[in-house]
Amino acid sequence: MSDDTGHDPKKSRRDMLKAIGVGAGLLLLPIGRVKADKDDKTADPDYDWEKHYWGYAVDTTKCIGCLACMRACRAENDVPAGYVRTWVERYSISADGTVRVDCAKDEMKGFEEVKDEPVKSFFVPKICNHCEKSVCNQVCPVGAAYRTKDGVVLVDTQRCIGCGYCVQACPYGSRFINPTTHTADKCTLCYHRITKGMQPACVQACPKGARIFGDLADKKSPLSILLRQRRYRLLKPEMGTHPKCYYIGLDREVI
């Protein structure tokens, strides 16, 4: 059936639908999808990331708050002033139960004396927990936040657009937007060191052995042995992030 202009609407509708169908079909063709380059090694030839699963432990009973770890991290990783990849908190709990938490204003000057009378006071060093189910990876819109096969949560600074969603998402305050590179930044567990058999800068710098780094895949590593011997806790386990940083000697008040 056609109208005065000789145009058959039913036919034109069918034609349009056909065109759409063909178009949709075209979408499923492999249009120029370049396959992943299999020769491109993602690790140095000597380092096999399948063989390791890195973890970290913090012994808060040993920390003296000297901040050698913060200084080492800043020098090692060129951390911009005003931001931290690792830090140390000081908790002071007074007799009536009030909790006071603070960080040193300046790691070159250390913690200052405070005129208070706590019944309990201790230091808690903190780093990125390199969670197994990290929220930061979940919320990155462009796939710039990822976890390597050896368990380290990293940022792809080439793809990061600097939206800051991961910074908001981290429940532990480990991430920040680097004011120089304008991308997300965080503790990398000194990936450039641990893949060469060295220890992270903070672990090496600690004079008291309050920071322990090791291979969770190796049952005989110092870290694995420590975790079998001591009682430890995770930070904010209720978040369901499965952090891989284990804290020994944590008190109830530690957030």
Partner: peptide, 10 residues
């Protein structure tokens, strides 16, 4: 207390 990195409003 806010974590040191969270003192910056992103």
């Amino acid at each position: 207390f806010v974590f040191p990195n969270e003192a910056h409003v992103t």
